[in-house]
């Protein structure tokens, strides 16, 4: 078995006074793609937020180790530099901050951390040229402010484009499929698939099975009420598509 990239053990977390994750355990190894599925309010986005280090969430129990290191001890930027990437469900528009300037600054922070020389403007542009083709994005978007004036699909493709440039070890994609038409979905999924390597891993969070037709997972986990209630292979996603989530509720399971 390859080495674990992410090890979540009995993770309990929530927002002030409200538990959302109630004991999640999950191990993701190099080369694997895991999908987390679940109904609204099951804690999918909270899990992504806690892993990326978003403010406002309290971890009340359990542990998360990333490449053997305590992930929860790290600031969001330290996680990013160590190779964790969050694809946002709602990418943020940042007026006045140029896309190219932003992404070059981010890449150079990460390269510095990895002991690589920083890229100058020319080197960066040639790198970007290659990667942008992968996502079928208009290069002119990079001259604009971050996500400002981007369509919904462009925003999502831009997330995957950033992922392609930053080359994370662990990519967490939070409902990257939401709001995409089938063509955009195909482009995004193709991009993600091309970035799969034996030494990295992906955690794909989605509400619908549709995305998993294109990004084929090795494992599927069903999250309900902040717990993983079932894990299986890719066929579990199809079963969920056919039967919905109700049959997995604790009440139904007990019956």
């Amino acid at each position: 078995m390859s080495k674990p990239i992410l090890e979540i053990k009995d993770l309990n977390a929530g927002v002030v006074g409200k538990p959302i994750l109630n004991g999640i355990s999950l191990t993701i190894r190099a080369g694997e793609t895991h999908a987390i599925m679940g109904p609204n309010g099951s804690g999918k986005s909270t899990l992504a937020a806690v892993l990326a280090g978003r403010d406002g969430y309290d971890v009340t129990g359990g542990s998360v180790h990333y490449l053997g290191e305590d992930l929860l001890e790290l600031a969001p930027e330290e996680r990013a530099r160590a190779g964790v990437f969050l694809g946002f469900q709602y990418p943020v528009e940042i007026p006045g901050v140029n896309s190219t300037y932003f992404l070059k600054a981010a890449l150079n922070e990460i390269r510095r951390h990895r002991g690589l020389p920083e890229l100058d403007a020319m080197e960066f542009l040639s790198l970007v040229k290659d990667k942008i083709k992968l996502l079928d994005l208009d290069a002119d978007l990079l001259k604009r402010a971050v996500n400002v004036g981007f369509s919904g699909g462009e925003k999502k493709r831009n997330e995957i484009f950033q992922m392609a440039v930053l080359e994370p070890k662990l990519a967490i994609l939070d409902e990257t499929d939401s709001g995409l038409d089938i063509d955009a979905l195909r482009v995004v999924a193709t991009g993600v698939n091309k970035l799969r390597r034996p030494d990295n891993a992906q955690l794909v969070i989605t509400h619908y099975q549709r995305l998993l037709n294109y990004i084929v997972p090795d494992f599927v986990h069903v999250l309900m009420d902040g717990r993983i209630v079932r894990s299986g292979g890719k066929e579990l996603a199809l079963e969920l598509e056919a039967r919905g989530y109700d049959w997995l509720t604790p009440a139904a399971a007990a019956a």
Binding site: A52, G53, R54, D55, A75, P76, E77, R79, A80, R81, F85, L86, F88, P91, V92, I94, P95, G96, V97, F102, L103, A105, A106, L107, E109, I110, H113, A145, V146, Q162, L166
Partner: peptide, 27 residues
């Protein structure tokens, strides 16, 4: 949200703040 977005890409908090403040003046 903007600060978190920038930090989630590896940019340190202080630089993220300065980028946003500068952008506000840049307009």
């Amino acid at each position: 949200e903007s600060i978190f977005y920038l930090r989630s890409r590896g940019i340190p908090r202080d630089l993220a703040r300065r980028m946003l403040i500068h952008a506000f003046g840049g307009e």
